[in-house]
Simulated scan of single mutants.
Amino acid sequence: MQLVVARIGRAHGIKGEVTVEVRTDEPELRLGPGAVLATDPASTGPLTIATGRVHSGKLLLRFEGCLDRTAAEALRNTLLIADVDPEDLPEESDEYYDHQLMDLDVVLADGTEIGRITEISHLASQDLFIVERPDGTELMIPFVEQIVTEIDLEEQRAVINPPPGLIDDSQAEVASERDDA
Rank of each mutant, 00 (worst) to 15 (best):
Met1Ser: 13
Val4Gly: 04
Val5Leu: 08
Ala6Arg: 01
Arg10Gly: 12
His12Ser: 14
Gly13Arg: 02
Lys15Met: 10
Lys15Asp: 15
Lys15Arg: 14
Gly16Thr: 11
Glu17Asn: 12
Glu21Tyr: 02
Val22His: 09
Glu26Asp: 10
Pro27Met: 01
Glu28Asn: 06
Leu31Phe: 10
Gly32Met: 10
Gly32Tyr: 06
Pro33Gln: 07
Ala35Leu: 03
Val36Met: 14
Leu37Met: 03
Leu37Asn: 01
Thr39Met: 11
Thr39Gln: 07
Asp40Gln: 07
Asp40Asn: 11
Pro41Val: 14
Ala42Gln: 10
Ser43Glu: 12
Leu47Tyr: 02
Thr48Glu: 13
Thr48Pro: 07
Thr48Trp: 00
Arg53Ile: 12
Arg53Phe: 14
His55Asn: 09
Ser56Thr: 10
Ser56Glu: 14
Gly57Phe: 09
Lys58Gly: 00
Leu59Ala: 05
Phe63Met: 08
Glu64Met: 07
Glu64Asp: 13
Ala71Trp: 06
Glu73Ala: 14
Ala74Tyr: 01
Ala74Val: 01
Ala74Leu: 08
Arg76Val: 06
Thr78Gly: 08
Leu80Phe: 05
Asp83His: 14
Asp83Lys: 05
Asp83Ala: 13
Asp85Gln: 10
Glu87Phe: 09
Pro90Lys: 01
Glu91Gly: 11
Glu92Cys: 00
Ser93Ile: 11
Leu101Thr: 09
Met102Ser: 09
Asp103Cys: 08
Asp103Glu: 15
Val106Tyr: 07
Val106Ser: 02
Gly111Ala: 08
Arg116His: 07
Thr118Gln: 06
Thr118Gly: 11
Ser121Met: 14
His122Lys: 10
His122Arg: 13
Leu123Ala: 11
Leu123Pro: 00
Ala124Phe: 13
Ile130His: 04
Ile130Lys: 05
Val131Pro: 05
Pro134Tyr: 01
Pro134Ser: 07
Asp135Arg: 00
Glu138Thr: 15
Ile141Trp: 02
Ile141Glu: 08
Glu145Ala: 04
Gln146His: 02
Val148Glu: 05
Thr149Pro: 06
Glu150Trp: 00
Ile151Asn: 07
Asp152Phe: 08
Arg157Glu: 05
Val159Ala: 05
Ile160Ser: 03
Asn161Trp: 00
Pro163Lys: 00
Pro164Tyr: 09
Ser170His: 02
Ser170Arg: 08
Gln171Ser: 13
Ala172Ser: 10
Ala175Tyr: 13
Ala175Met: 02
Ala175Lys: 00
Asp179Leu: 14
